[in-house]
């Protein structure tokens, strides 16, 4: 009975094999994250291109880094905002900065957990965004250059298709 109560209030710790697996996942992730300077530059360029579609930014003071945190590794983007773009419609979902394919290296780009990014919108409104407006997104894996190319192509196809659909429906195609 006492044992039962004990286990009720103190659930047993996870088996050590589970702990080992989780620790390895994290440590290998950060081992793999030693990205080449070219890849890091490409990531930064892609990121800036996307953000500048929504807000005006000062790309010369933008900073993209990786941070090792308690339970994950995060990509941190600190990008000063200099103004707001006038926009009547949000851009199409599948549009990626395709022309902006930046430098294509045989190395790696990062894979992120899109479900749990924490953009502090309050801080983003602050014009001094370089201090407070950092976007922090957990990194969940590393993507090979080949995979990136495939994804870009897929996104391009999707974008083309949605533009074609829009035209069929007599709507203006979205940029």
């Amino acid at each position: 009975m006492l044992d039962f109560l004990k286990t009720l209030f103190n659930p047993p710790p996870p088996p050590s094999s589970t702990t080992a697996k989780e620790r390895l996942r994290l440590v290998l992730l950060s081992d793999h994250l030693s990205l080449s300077p070219e890849t890091l530059a490409a990531l930064k360029a892609d990121l800036l291109a996307v953000i500048s579609r929504y807000v005006e930014i000062d790309s010369s003071h933008a900073d993209v880094t990786f941070e090792h945190r308690e339970n994950d590794v995060a990509v941190l983007a600190s990008i000063p905002i200099t103004g707001v773009r006038e926009r009547t419609q949000p851009p199409a979902q599948a549009t990626l900065p395709l022309e902006m394919s930046a430098i294509d290296t045989e190395t790696h780009a990062v894979q992120i957990d899109a479900g749990s990014e924490s953009v502090d919108t309050q801080a983003m409104n602050d014009t001094n965004a370089s201090e407070n407006g950092a976007t922090s997104t957990p990194v969940t894996g590393v993507v090979s250059a080949a995979t990136r190319r495939r994804r870009r192509k897929k996104a391009q196809n999707l974008a083309n298709r949605s533009n074609a659909n829009a035209q069929q429906l007599g709507k203006p195609a979205q940029a």
Binding site: P15, S16, S17, A20, K21, L24, R25, L28
Partner: peptide
């Protein structure tokens, strides 16, 4: 040990 959760399984290793 794999059975009792004290060692990673062969599948775990291949997956990692």
């Amino acid at each position: 040990m794999v059975k009792s959760g004290d060692m990673m399984s062969v599948d775990d290793v291949c997956e990692i």
